Amino acid sequence: MTAPLEVSGSAAEAQPEAVLSGMESKTIEGRSLGRIAWIRFKRDKVAVAGGIVVVLLVLLAVLSKPIEWVFGLDPNALHQNLIDPVLLRPKGALGGISWAHPLGIEPQFGRDLLSRIIEGSWVSLAVAFGATVLSNIIGMVLGVVAGFYGGWVDTLISRLMDIFLAFPLLLFAIAISASLQGGAFGLHGLPLHISVLIFVIGFFNWPYMGRIIRGQTLSLREREFVDAARSLGARGPFILFKELLPNLVAPIIVYSTLLIPTNILFEAGLSFLGVGIEPPQASWGGMLNQAVDLYQADPMFMVIPGMAIFITVLAFNLLGDGLRDALDPRNN
């Protein structure tokens, strides 16, 4: 009879049974795709900084009215006593900057710049978010339908995208906004102007989202989970809205964060041209329009709203770049 094989202490420690015996009580915790994306996003400090600025800007826009009420700010109040009657510029060398007016006051009119920046924030973000939502809804539906069905449906929707992309949007927006200044659809004043801007910007910008969704859908429709849904008897609408759209959330979120600053710039451009938000309602583009005539009196009147637009657009772009990298499954 063969003698049993002796095993040294170091060899015994290397046996699989001995190694695994201490692991029985421990469980391996899996990580969802959302958690993995969040970990990646937190590593990008620049994107996190952009996200913090975006959150602060949104809170400022949402709470603009309560802030004005709590601190007694009136964006349309005139402070003629602080204006030099001869030079029509703020008295003093600092452009009227004081504890009561931290950013100074307007030349000629004497309105507080800080309160007008706060008031203009909700106008710009309301138009940008509203137009982005409208363009996303149209672009998502038409893009996923074109990519999934293909054939003449894809051809028709793709040519429709080409027509909208070739349309002179700026000229059409100027014409529409100028023709509806008085009133239309039962709306007047600020609600009308905001609704018109949201419609014009959102309705004619949907092809950008539509093209991205169409390209993603062309790739996803060949995946195994779509074939599995078909084999179980799922029809086209079910596959579109239950199988494909949930997998398109990442590109939709990323492109939305990049489309919002574009819409902010477009609204500011229309207001700068005088066909957007009408004064005396404060808007960042309208403040730049007024600053052109008053630039010699006080250059800071142009710098302050310009910096507000610059910081907002930069923050959204940094956030969008970070989300794109975090949600990309090819990144490790």
Rank of each mutant, 00 (worst) to 15 (best):
K26T: 14
F148I: 10
D328Y: 01
A131C: 10
W284P: 14
I117H: 02
P66L: 01
T27H: 08
V58A: 07
L88G: 04
L294F: 14
V133T: 15
G320D: 09
E267S: 08
L192H: 04
V55H: 03
V127P: 13
D162T: 13
I105F: 04
F109P: 02
P237M: 03
A3N: 11
G72A: 05
L220P: 05
I118W: 03
A291Y: 11
G130N: 08
L113N: 09
D44K: 10
L270S: 07
P207S: 00
M140K: 00
L103D: 06
L218A: 04
L273R: 07
I28E: 11
A175M: 13
P280G: 00
I253W: 01
L187E: 00
L171M: 12
L82Q: 06
Y255I: 14
N76T: 15
S64N: 10
G143F: 04
A326P: 05
G306N: 07
I194D: 03
G276Y: 09
V53A: 09
L78P: 14
G183P: 10
G95H: 06
I260K: 05
P107H: 00
G306V: 12
G143I: 02
L169F: 12
M300P: 14
P305R: 00
I105N: 02
P279R: 00
G9N: 10
L258V: 06
L232H: 10
R230D: 02
L190K: 05
D162K: 07
L169T: 14
V123S: 02
